[in-house]
Design a protein around this nucleic acid. Structure first.
Length: 693
DNA sequence: GCAAGGTC
């Protein structure tokens, strides 16, 4: 009898580490079935440890066939059924299901949070066939051997069903909101313009877009006010420095001029020197958000790019798990081991040795924690294949930050020299790094802003080379960039570390946002306007807060799941009927700002009948149907027109029909089906006009 | 296909 305990984790990495920790000899067997990895370990009994890869089940419409709108019913299904890009998950579920048939005990070892709970629950219920009520729950907070052994020896007797319910509710409500409101927008715009453009919104997209809209409004309504700065250029032993007048800003030109004329022709006298020493601790180790932020600041990599590069580095075993919110580096990761391995690289050799020479290695840590992972650190493994520039830069950044956290604080001396020119005081400021500390290890990823002043004594007389004023205007608030928008989302706790970058990207894809100095487009603005006009409650900050609170309540054991769901649906019913009632107005409002396809993409070629006009893809204002017409039509010169298919997308091809020489049109249907269309009604191939590739 | 959330 070879029965075993089936342990289910959220991801392969966790499965591997649990197997390593629980196998008595620390040597679990690695297996693969149809590219699904799993591990066999021996402890008090045989353990089979199999990972999911995130969510294997999701919410989808209840019935097959045409999609209704609005839609308020749903069911949970395997993801490969609901999502085209998730086909590979079918075999994953099959492998887990097979391993489950011979198991006599089940342990849910997914991350101990609401998403992890739902990952485990759905697998136990569906893939393992109703094992959700007999499964035990393994609760750990880091993937260290100690913690995992402890967690296994004190398994919780059952799943945390409150947490599961919270997870289910979160999924369902997000789906209902997102699908219904997105369809409302898309359908309204399609009906009015005849063109299909994907429009969307959701619990996170809406508020994020609103942040940008509010900033844009603040910029537009900003009234610049003038102010003046008065400066004195001082000469000290042959070098020149700008000292600033103590009053900053000066609000009137007259006042600035008075100061200038008072000071004219006078020398400066050093009245006082204020010096301070600052000790600056190293920055904490990276969590995903701070890595994304720093990589944008230093290299201008977008948060999405950084997440992708980090994932590659992780898969190549160069850095630890990147999707973490932890700023902690537990001892168990083996600081010394890592530094020793880094010594193999000439670039880091000297610095790593300096750290190894310290009597104690103690990292500076931040406050943020993560239930399953430490902060991001280099593993010490070396690349097996050459890295590209982006990978190199990011890996280097992680390594240098890792070294920096073990280093001493940086000591900076700042000085403020008070210089009297007549009755006016000017400030000459200097700063200098006295002790490099962690900066030494973090270089070149630092920005030095040193201003080193020559030795100056109190009472000294300094020559004023020139006096001048600068005319300035107050600046409007600056636009968000990918880094600051990400931070804003973090501050308001909308989205998660793993999704924020992705959601920003979606807003770009929808053409709601543009540029790295992030501006909202007309389309983005109107989409928000529509939602605010017709269903303000649903996208208000208060209702988002309230929803979060209620999901929190469910997680804490209050039996509010049914009620929360019912209320969400009733709110949505009102919102969608409101949107439907105003569909026409909304559609027109959105059509006005929908980007029209560029003329170049619509031109097909010369008109065969009038020879002077051009054939273009047009749309009838009356019927909304598209067709091919001659540009001379508008001048009343040529009435040539040809029909086009109304389904799918059409675009001119650069090639001509082999049989009649007319230009060809590329037609792409919803699925994979596509063909080259010759629209010449007299083409010899007329009877088989749809020719597949 | 539209969400947001995991994951590779």
């Amino acid at each position: 009898m070879s029965s075993y305990c089936l342990v289910i984790t959220e991801k392969p990495d966790a499965a591997r580490r649990i197997a390593l920790a629980l196998d008595t000899k620390g040597k679990p067997e690695t297996h693969h079935e149809r590219h699904v990895p799993y591990w066999i370990a021996w402890r008090n009994k045989k353990l089979v440890i199999v990972p999911a890869i995130g969510h294997l089940y999701t919410v989808a419409k209840e019935h097959a066939g045409k999609d209704p709108y609005p839609i308020f019913t749903f069911r949970w299904v395997p993801r490969h059924i609901a999502e085209r890009k998730a086909k590979h998950l079918a075999r994953w579920i099959e492998v887990i299901a097979k391993l489950a048939t011979e198991a006599d005990m089940f342990v849910d070892a997914c991350d101990y949070d609401i998403e992890g709970s739902i990952v485990g629950y759905m697998i136990l219920k569906y893939a393992c066939r109703n094992k959700e009520n007999i499964a035990m729950r393994m609760k750990y907070s880091t993937l260290t051997n100690e913690e995992l052994e402890k967690a296994y020896s004190s398994l919780l007797p059952q799943l945390d069903f409150a947490m599961v319910e919270a997870g289910q509710t979160r999924h369902e409500i997000d789906w209902l909101y997102g699908i219904n409101l997105s369809r409302a927008l898309t359908i309204a715009a399609k009906k009015a313009s005849g063109r299909y453009a994907t429009l969307s919104t959701g619990r996170v997209q809406g508020p994020t877009l609103k942040f940008v809209a509010l900033r844009e409004k603040a910029i537009k309504s900003f009234v610049p006010t003038p102010y003046w700065l008065v400066k004195a250029q001082i000469e000290i032993t042959g070098s020149f420095f700008d000292a600033e007048y103590e009053k900053n800003p000066i609000k009137s030109r007259e006042e600035a001029d008075t100061v200038l004329s008072d000071c004219k022709g006078r020398d400066g006298k050093v009245e006082e020197i204020e010096s301070k020493r600052l000790h600056q601790k190293p920055p904490p180790p990276f969590d995903l958000g701070s890595l994304q932020s720093e990589a944008y600041k230093l290299f201008k990599y977008t948060p999405k790019q950084t997440a992708e590069i980090a994932q590659h580095l992780y898969l190549d075993a160069l850095i630890s798990y990147p999707r973490t919110s932890s700023q902690k580096l537990p001892k168990t990761i083996g600081y010394k081991q890592i530094l020793k391995k880094l010594c193999a690289l000439p670039k880091y050799n000297k610095k790593a040795l300096e750290l190894l020479a310290k009597s104690e290695l103690k990292p500076l840590e931040g406050v943020k924690q993560d239930p399953a992972h430490p902060a991001i650190y280099p593993t010490g493994h070396l690349p097996e294949k050459p890295l590209n520039t982006m990978e190199k830069n990011l890996w280097d950044l992680v390594i240098r930050r890792f070294m920096a956290v073990f280093a001493e604080p940086t000591t900076i001396e700042t000085s403020n020299v008070h210089i009297a020119i007549g009755k006016h005081i000017f400030h000459l400021k200097g700063s200098q790094v006295i002790k490099k500390g962690w900066l030494h290890f973090y270089e070149p990823h630092t920005r030095s802003t040193e201003t080193v002043l020559p030795p100056i004594k109190e009472g000294e007389i300094l020559k004023v080379e020139k006096l001048f004023k600068e005319d300035r205007f107050t600046n409007p608030p600056s636009r968000y960039n990918p880094r600051t928008l990400l931070k804003k989302m973090e501050e308001h706790e909308i989205g998660t570390k793993a999704t924020r970058a992705e959601i920003m990207h979606t807003l770009y894809k929808r053409k709601y946002l543009q540029g790295m100095e992030i501006a909202i487009t007309n389309l983005g603005f109107e989409v928000l306007d529509v939602l605010e006009k017709h269903c303000p409650k649903i996208i208000s900050v208060e209702s988002t807060r309230e929803l979060e609170e209620r999901i929190g309540n469910i997680q804490n054991g209050k039996k509010e799941r049914e009620k929360t769901l019912e209320e969400a649906i009733s709110m949505l019913q009102k919102a969608t009927s409101q949107l439907k009632a105003n569909e026409k107005t909304i559609g027109i409002q959105l059509s006005k700002v929908l980007e029209k396809p560029k003329l170049a993409e619509r031109i097909i070629g010369k008109c065969p009948s009038c020879k002077t006009g051009k054939l273009v893809i047009l749309r009838s204002r009356k019927t909304g149907k598209r067709f091919i017409g001659c540009t001379n039509y508008f001048k009343g010169l040529c009435k040539t027109s040809y029909p086009l298919p109304q389904q799918g997308s059409v675009k001119p091809l650069a090639t001509n029909c082999k049989l009649c020489g007319w230009p060809l049109i590329h037609v792409q249907m919803k699925g994979r089906y596509q063909w080259k269309l010759c629209f010449n009604p007299n083409c010899p191939r007329k009877k088989e006009k749809a020719k597949a590739f």
